[in-house]
Each structure stands twice: as C-alpha cells, then as structure tokens.
C-alpha cells in the first residue's frame, strides 16, 4: 500500500495512543468499581477519606460537662435540659484553644424558634408555652428577665 494512504492511519493511531497515555496518567489508581458494583460504586476510592477528614465543629454537651458542670447542673433541672449547649453558644470546635471564647445567641428569634405560639395539633410545638413577640416586651432581650439556664422569672 502507498504511504499516503497509511499516513492518516498513523495519525489516528497516534491520537488514540495519546488519549490512552493521558488517561493512564490522569485517572488515579484507586478509580474503579468498588463495593456497590458498576452502577453505584464506580468512583475514586480516595474521596471517602477526604470526606472523613472534614473537621468536626459540634462537640456535643458531653464535651462541655467537665468544665461547665455548674451550668449543666442548673439547666438539667429545667425544661431547657433538652437543649444542647451548642444550640445557643455555637459550635465548640477546639474550645478553649480555638475559639477561646464562644458566642451566645441572645436574639429574640433564638427563643421564638420554640416559644412563638403555633397551635398545631399533632406537633410537639402545641405543648410549648409561647408568647406574642409583638406584645410581650418587644424591645428587650428575653434574657433580661429569663435566665435561659433557669427560665422561670427571677432565675
């Protein structure tokens, strides 16, 4: 066969080889079919580790109880015992090193999440005492009168 006929064949073969070599270098070794089979488990295995390495921000009340036992013993005697510390104080992360001080959400909206009265039957919300935020001391923070750790008046 004449060479001018073979030339495009070489070009095509060259392109295919280049694509295969690029794919070999670009696609990581751990990319392939894993436990859930080809339909659901065709992926880069290393990504599982990347997700596991995400930092934990919420450390839960267990983490707080050793240093802040006084606050916890106070709140556990009240209906607010069910509320985790970090819901109002923000994520502890690596407190006390980072951040050294936690914020406190004292906004009225924070309390209204539960204490805005929504009389919905079949929802636990109906059993929580609520206030009308437009009539009940609208200009001041709730914590001025109610200690969130001991929410009755004069706490």
């Amino acid at each position: 066969m004449k060479s001018h006929l073979l030339r495009p064949v070489y070009v095509v073969l060259g392109i295919i080889a280049a694509i295969l070599i690029f794919r070999m270098l670009y696609v990581p070794k751990d990319f392939g079919v894993h436990e859930r089979g080809y339909m659901y488990g065709w992926y880069r295995k290393g990504n599982e580790q990347e997700w596991k390495a995400v930092s934990i921000k919420y450390m839960t009340t267990e983490y707080c109880k050793d240093c802040h036992a006084d606050k916890i013993s106070m709140i556990t005697k009240t209906p607010h015992a069910v509320i985790p510390c970090e819901n109002c104080h923000g994520p502890a992360r690596e407190h006390p090193s980072d951040p050294p001080k936690l914020s406190i959400d004292k906004s009225r909206n924070q309390c209204l999440r539960c204490h805005y009265p929504l009389p919905y039957p079949t929802s636990g919300r109906a059993n929580i005492r609520g206030i009308d935020p437009e009539k009940h001391n609208p200009d001041i923070e709730c914590a001025m009168c109610h200690n969130p750790h001991k929410p009755g008046l004069g706490g």
Binding site: F31, H34, E35, R36, M39, Y40, G41, W42, Y43, R44, N47, E48, E50, W51
Partner: peptide, 27 residues
Amino acid sequence: NPPCVQVCPVGATYQTADGVVLVDRKW
C-alpha cells in the same frame, strides 16, 4: 437505588459500602 448516582457521567457521585451517597468534589 440512588438515581442521582446512575446519571452521573463521570463517576463523581457514588455509594459507599455502608450506604451513604457521596460527591467527589474533585471529580
């Protein structure tokens, strides 16, 4: 049977052995 995984053309979303569907942000 996650339909979101079936349609991914590049293998960027997948199901782990313990049933959680993850997304590979690099992929």
